[in-house]
Simulated assay, not measured.
Amino acid sequence: MKHTNPMPGDIGLTQISGVTGRLIRLGQWLNGDGFADYQHAFLVLPDNRLLEAVPGGARIRSLSEYTGANALYVCPEGLTEQQRSAICDAATRYIGVPYSFLDYLAIATHRFHLPVPGLRRYIASTRHMICSQLVDQCYLDAGVHLFADGRWPGYVTPMALYKLLAH
């Protein structure tokens, strides 16, 4: 479900300009998500804050950072207040978690069924996360499974979130 007034537990999707945005678009294309308009995902927290994964490590910022940006807010239908609270509580455990562009390559490797022994274990063990993985993990920690398609935990791009929740 998409809407314009962000609430704690919502997922924000937005664009990233420049080289970084183009690299993420390429990574999403490799993963079958196309060259669409959303390259970044973040989690809305209480008190007009957000959690986002960035190259320097996951951080909490003011939601006002995205005022005026082309941000789309989405969440699963029927998300309860208790679930929203649990998702936001889970978010605090991930402050500082490193970011890794290599996760896009790992997701593409999995998508193309390339035989890389230990890939799933490696991705889980590094504790690196791209923005969409971080959001998905907070939901999983709260017991809310966004994807029912059998994908491995963490094999999520911003456009996968858009396709699932914004249509």
Results as ranks from 00 to 15, higher is better:
Lys2Asp: 07
Lys2Tyr: 02
Pro6Arg: 04
Gly9Asn: 08
Gly9Ile: 01
Ile11Asn: 05
Gly12Lys: 07
Leu13Phe: 04
Thr14Cys: 09
Gly18Glu: 03
Arg22Cys: 09
Leu23Asp: 09
Leu30Cys: 15
Asp33Pro: 07
Gly34Lys: 07
Phe35Glu: 09
Ala36Tyr: 13
Gln39His: 08
Gln39Ser: 13
Ala41Asp: 12
Leu45Asp: 15
Asp47Glu: 15
Arg49Met: 14
Leu50Ala: 11
Leu51Ser: 13
Val54Phe: 02
Val54Leu: 07
Pro55Gln: 03
Pro55Cys: 04
Ser62Gly: 13
Leu63Ile: 08
Leu63Asn: 07
Ser64His: 03
Val74Met: 03
Glu77Leu: 01
Thr80Gly: 03
Gln83Glu: 04
Arg84Glu: 08
Ser85Val: 00
Ala91Trp: 02
Ile95Phe: 06
Gly96Thr: 02
Ser100Val: 02
Phe101Arg: 03
Asp103Ser: 04
Leu105Gly: 09
Ile107Asp: 04
His110Pro: 03
His110Cys: 06
His110Ile: 12
Phe112Glu: 11
Leu114Cys: 06
Pro115Tyr: 03
Arg120Asp: 12
Ile123Met: 10
Ala124Gly: 09
Arg127Trp: 08
Arg127Pro: 14
Ile130Val: 15
Ser132Met: 12
Leu134Gly: 10
Asp136Phe: 07
Gln137Arg: 15
Asp141Leu: 09
Ala142Leu: 02
Gly143His: 01
Gly143Glu: 06
Ala148Pro: 00
Trp152Glu: 04
Tyr155Ile: 11
Val156Arg: 11
Pro158Phe: 11
Leu164Val: 13
Leu164Ser: 05
Leu165Glu: 05
